[in-house]
Design a binder for these strands. Sequence first.
DNA 1: AATCATAGCCAAAGCGCTTTGGATGCGCAC
DNA 2: GTGCGCATCCAAAGCGCTTTGGCTATGATT
Lengths: 343, 343
Amino acid sequence: MNLKELSQELGLSQTTVSRALNGYPEVSAATRKRVEEAAQAFNYRPSTRAKGLATGQALAIGHVIPVSSKHEMVNPIFGDFIAGAGETYARQGYEMILSIVDDDNEEQIYRGLKSRRAVDGVIVHGPRMDDDRLPLLHELQMPFAVHGRASGSTTPYTWLDVNNRSAFERATNFLLDLGHQRIALINGLEVMDFAHRRRTGYEDALTGHGIAIDPALMRSGEMTEVFGYQTTRNMLGQDDAPTAIVASSLICALGARRAIEERGLVMGKDVSIITHDDALSYLQNGDEIPIFTATRSSVREAGRRLAMMLLDAVGDPGRAPQHVLLEAELMVGGSTGPSPRKD
Amino acid sequence: MNLKELSQELGLSQTTVSRALNGYPEVSAATRKRVEEAAQAFNYRPSTRAKGLATGQALAIGHVIPVSSKHEMVNPIFGDFIAGAGETYARQGYEMILSIVDDDNEEQIYRGLKSRRAVDGVIVHGPRMDDDRLPLLHELQMPFAVHGRASGSTTPYTWLDVNNRSAFERATNFLLDLGHQRIALINGLEVMDFAHRRRTGYEDALTGHGIAIDPALMRSGEMTEVFGYQTTRNMLGQDDAPTAIVASSLICALGARRAIEERGLVMGKDVSIITHDDALSYLQNGDEIPIFTATRSSVREAGRRLAMMLLDAVGDPGRAPQHVLLEAELMVGGSTGPSPRKD
DNA sequence: AATCATAGCCAAAGCGCTTTGGATGCGCAC
DNA sequence: GTGCGCATCCAAAGCGCTTTGGCTATGATT
């Protein structure tokens, strides 16, 4: 069923039917009602493509998901973020279109989305330091919103981020207050902006307590379970091993725990762990009492909100860029305890 | 830059330019070359919407991701599957459209995709027993392909599945051969087709060895870490506790390990675990030596292949439904050992 | 020389919608 | 009775592409 057929069915013009369905005032209430009922009955929905052609809008938002070409690594938070964003799109009548792309030819994808006029805007995932996607999108005049921030960008842009610096400062302070002195940081890849901010927070806390920063205790890499395991295992084998670890993700923390227990040590007693927790649906940090002490912020909620921010920007191109900085909450769980080393 | 502008630039008609770019034979080699170079230079790409309108094709595939409304649970395999499928679409010039939907009003979504003519076909995720989506999609005449199978469907359809039955039979046999008699099953929700098949494999192995099936050792639920932990903890507290566990996912297995170690037991010695492993990029089962003995099958590869199968079906509607049954490989890791109980 | 394929190109219709720029008829004021 | 404003509807153009149904040379065939 298309507009033409529907309007013939009703004995009205396409114009009137279209207007009736789109809420224009030039239609009598009675006619509108009749049209709406018929549309319902015939299960009529306008073709997105035709509508898009006619209006010049795509009614779609693009998500370009970078996948590390080396490790075929898909960011685990992606599912939950998408789920959140998807809720917003569904409510607002937008389509979500996804492009998976290895990080080499991302530029191609953005240019393609633009020239094919496939989307009205894009969400930028996983911003890096001095991310070249931002200038590119500006150049393309493509509305966008960033999940996170990209240090080094000169022009303003819309973003939503967790306050990674303060979260990691707080986490580190929490451990310092428990008497820990040797605190390790297991971080994400340092090209990633969030990892950089987290490190800053960690370092600020240490220097604030007059503790020197020891590069031997700072590791960064792709945040897998294996990475958490290996770095922890490695550091626990060092002289002057850490008594506490700040981890960048729950998955890393699981690996760290495995290394701790493998050495016959007890988490929360011999070695404390505090981690950031993205509140992923399938990987909850325990039930009532968290397993890991953690700084927590829901990635799904972030998806919901950032999508809405982008739609706002698409709807009103003149509007100034919006920013949201979320504070993570600190959840105390069983993975932290006073430092075993009495100094 | 659009077709009209490009053809004016070249001094050719839109017809000729369109044909040149789409590989039709009615264009001289010289002209085609000239057109292609100009398209390149002006970064021209046809508008997907206009092309879709003209051809009647959407050039897009829909993925409808059901999210459990109760637990806001996003299936963790989804990211990797999508990544695989996305590779195929990118290669074939298709768009991927994602709809997140809570499992109550899935029907609406499918009807919407159809009547809005938004996609050429859909991938069905997470098929359930007697899944009502299959008859619906047949009724709508919407091409589809299923990741998994739906027992109880009468009409044939295209699917790709892991041989869950044989994998779990093999896993259970592996434990039986190690002398285990009390073997637990931590399974996904039994409305899910895969969970049902896995249970069958497990039961077949037990009865094949003359061992009675004990309902006290079989649990099913949403496959989270906490679920794995709680059920394991619970079962280990029972009289006649299991000495081995077959788990349906790595995440569950991690929870099970936590429960085992919490009791002061050693995995692979006091209690063995064997799990299914979807080879998720961010949650690898160890490095060289697997942490868990596991039946493994890459979900990403499944995405790649199933997407291609769907495109084949879309391209040739007359073709008979295709089926692919993947055999999981058994990886022996450190989580299994001989039964501690000498009978 | 007339005929005929054929290669190479073009004008215009059509895909399903929105939107512009009228038409039409009615009630009301003058 | 005329003119006006308003409510309600419509015909047709246009969005950017593909595709149908030509048209025009050119060279081969008779």
